[in-house]
Structure formats: structure tokens, C-alpha cells
């Protein structure tokens, strides 16, 4: 099935819904998971050879 055919089958609502979900997912991953969850243990890591 061509890409165009796929596009026709997906409704605008579903497209926007998926976009929002993916955007929230990516934002959560980068901004919350990486920046916050990863940062906390890194700040408290004992430094080698000190």
C-alpha cells in the first residue's frame, strides 16, 4: 500500500492524537528522564581518585 493510501485511511483526529502522544513521550524522555532522573544520581557519584 502506498504512503498516500495510508494517509487517506488515517483520520486527522488520529494523526493529531498520535502527534501529541509522541511529542509528550519524547519531551518526557528528554526533559524529565534524561535531565532530571539521570542528573540526580550523577551529582552524587563518588569521584574516582580523589
Amino acid at each position: 500500500m502506498s504512503e498516500k493510501g495510508q494517509d487517506e485511511q488515517i483520520g486527522m483526529g488520529a494523526k493529531i492524537g498520535f502527534f501529541i502522544m509522541a511529542a509528550v513521550g519524547c519531551a518526557f524522555y528528554y526533559l524529565i528522564f534524561l535531565n532530571w532522573v539521570l542528573m540526580v544520581p550523577i551529582q552524587n557519584l563518588p569521584y574516582p581518585y580523589k
Binding site: 500500500m1 504512503e3 495510508q6 494517509d7 488515517i10 494523526k15 498520535f18 502527534f19 509522541a22 511529542a23 519524547c26 519531551a27 524522555y29 528528554y30 526533559l31 534524561l34 535531565n35
Partner: peptide
């Protein structure tokens, strides 16, 4: 069949990475 979703996800993956 999930080409549209894949493209959408990839665009967001790269865009959000740049933002971060």
C-alpha cells in the same frame, strides 16, 4: 503500514533532541 507514525516519531525524536 506505520510509515506515517514512524516519520512523525522520527521528526519529534530529532527535534526534541535538538531542543534538549
Amino acid at each position: 503500514p506505520w510509515a506515517w507514525k514512524g516519520n512523525c516519531f522520527l521528526i519529534l525524536l530529532f527535534a526534541m533532541a535538538w531542543v534538549n
